[in-house]
């Protein structure tokens, strides 16, 4: 019965029936102890390991605890020393494995001690429980044994900082980078601009109205044009033309188109202006201003 039952896991494992195998490896009298630091030999939770089935609940290994595994390796029913006796820990997410070697005596009595400092850093930070399996094998025709025997929960002391080594460089696609552009300059809502534009334009009629109430008028236009028609037409025309040149410069002209035009208009304004202003002076001297 024992033989048959210890057969089962190895059958499942190898996935093929080894009928010819004379005997198969297994273990017996396995005890698992998790001993807190400073506690006596008998202290700590004791679990009996079964070669067929793994422990139903996970074994927890604290920061200062030591896990002790004692077992007797057997070939067939007899206790015997195998060539290979490993306690293999596997991280179920990454597949990382680490084997700890059981020191087995001639009588088949083997033992291994395990503390957190023996474990690689990946096991200490693993979120899932680590699978622990026992591997027993030797030369010859006996069927080797490998089966999961318990789950190991590594409960780390959160207060002790863990020196996690930097990840080594491996060639792979790096993360995409998209340039973050500076924010585009923004304008206030155009309705607000329009309100203020209306207010600004509104000042012109106000100005003209105020001037009108103060008695401003253009009644001497006829007189001025009568006295010096060409000068006045050219002078006022050149002032309007200058504003026109500014408008063209703003919309389409460049400086080299603007300057000659402004020069010509300026000369006209200077020549006609002196005549026109003489006429204005004459009116002042005549007491008409």
């Amino acid at each position: 019965m024992r033989l048959l039952s210890s057969f089962l896991p190895s059958l499942l494992l190898s996935g093929a029936c080894v009928v010819s195998a004379a005997s198969s490896w297994s273990f017996d009298d396995a005890t698992l102890t998790v001993q807190p630091k400073g506690a006596g030999v008998s202290a700590g939770a004791k679990e009996k390991l079964n070669p067929i089935a793994s422990l139903p609940k996970a074994v927890s290994l604290g920061a200062t605890d030591t896990l002790k595994l004692l077992l007797t390796t057997t070939e067939g029913k007899k206790a015997k020393r195998p060539h290979q006796a490993f306690l293999t820990l596997t991280d179920p997410t990454t597949g990382l494995e680490e084997s700890f070697i059981l020191s087995v005596k001639d009588s088949g009595k083997g033992k291994v001690d395990l503390a957190q400092k023996d474990l690689p850093i990946q096991f200490l930070t693993s979120s899932k429980p680590i699978q622990a399996s026992i591997v027993i094998g030797a030369f010859g025709s006996s069927t080797p044994y490998k089966s999961k025997v318990f789950d190991l929960n590594v409960s780390r002391d959160e207060n002790v900082p863990l020196a996690i080594p930097e990840k080594p460089v491996r060639y792979a696609a790096a993360k995409e980078i998209h340039h973050i552009f500076k924010e585009e300059p923004r304008s206030p809502p155009s309705i607000i601009s329009l309100v203020f534009v209306a207010a600004v334009i509104g000042t012109l009629p106000v100005l003209l109205g105020v001037w009108a109430t103060l008695g401003a008028n253009a009644s001497h236009l006829g007189k001025a044009l009568g006295n010096a028609p060409i000068s006045h037409a050219l002078f006022y025309g050149s002032i309007i033309a200058m504003e026109g040149i500014f408008f063209l410069y703003y919309t389409s002209w460049n400086l080299f188109q603007t300057l000659p035009a402004a020069g010509v208009v300026g000369l006209v304004a200077f020549l006609s202006g002196s005549r026109a202003l003489t006429e204005v002076q004459e009116r002042r001297l005549a007491g008409l201003r």
Partner: peptide
Amino acid sequence: AGWLAFVALWLYSAPA
């Protein structure tokens, strides 16, 4: 526009 109006006023306004 105000400048143009002011120039016209200065040149052609009759004393009120």
